[in-house]
Amino acid sequence: MLNTFVAVLRRDLLLAWRGRADVLVTLAFFVIVVCLFPFGVGAEPNLLRAIAPGVLWVAALLACLLSLHRLFAQDHVDGTLEQLLLSSEPAVLWVMAKVLAFWLSTGLPVVAVAPVLGLLLDLEQGAYPVLVISLALGTPILALLGAVGAALTLGLRGGGMLLALLVLPLFVPVLIFGAGAVEAELSGTGATAHLLLLGGGLAGALALAPWACAAALRVSTE
């Protein structure tokens, strides 16, 4: 059973490595969006410090959103998706492998770069661990929910905008608890509750999203 999972995971990571320019573009986008904020709201350190958690989270969310279309598009065009759907192994398995590979190649770099960007916005020292943990718990949820949207909009014209319209409302709770965790840490109330809720959300998304995504892929390739 694990064979298919491992095969898909290994192949997608290999593809991400061979096409690593895409990953770098995502990271560059993340960095540049964060850098735009001081130009927009002014470079007043107190203001930047106050909005830092929200800005970092929104930028990470957008970076994740903009790379979602890559998740199934190529496989859809070249016929690999059909072959995967004809696998004798359950579709949920390889969907999870694809989402995991996507997160490892897109979400994880974003999580890794976020603290550096925190420095640019003068985020307070104590908040860094919570920032990293909240992103590490939150971005997989974004990837799982986004995978459902990416599967539904597969091959549609204007699919990118439609994908954003479909998944952004679903991303709101993740943003609230993710950015909220960092702010709660800064305000001294402690981030435990937020992080537990994010963890719960991740468990829920892991349990439900792969099924919805597999069903959506069947619908979209029919």
């Binding site: 539904l152 409302p169 709101v172 709770p173 609230i176 909220g180 619908v219 979209s220």
Partner: peptide
Amino acid sequence: RRADRAGALIALVGAVNVPVIYFSVQWW
């Protein structure tokens, strides 16, 4: 047919998420 089924899926995904959204917004 794809429209029917895709719409149905996103409606269900949305319905599962509505309570989560409502709760999170309340909390926020």
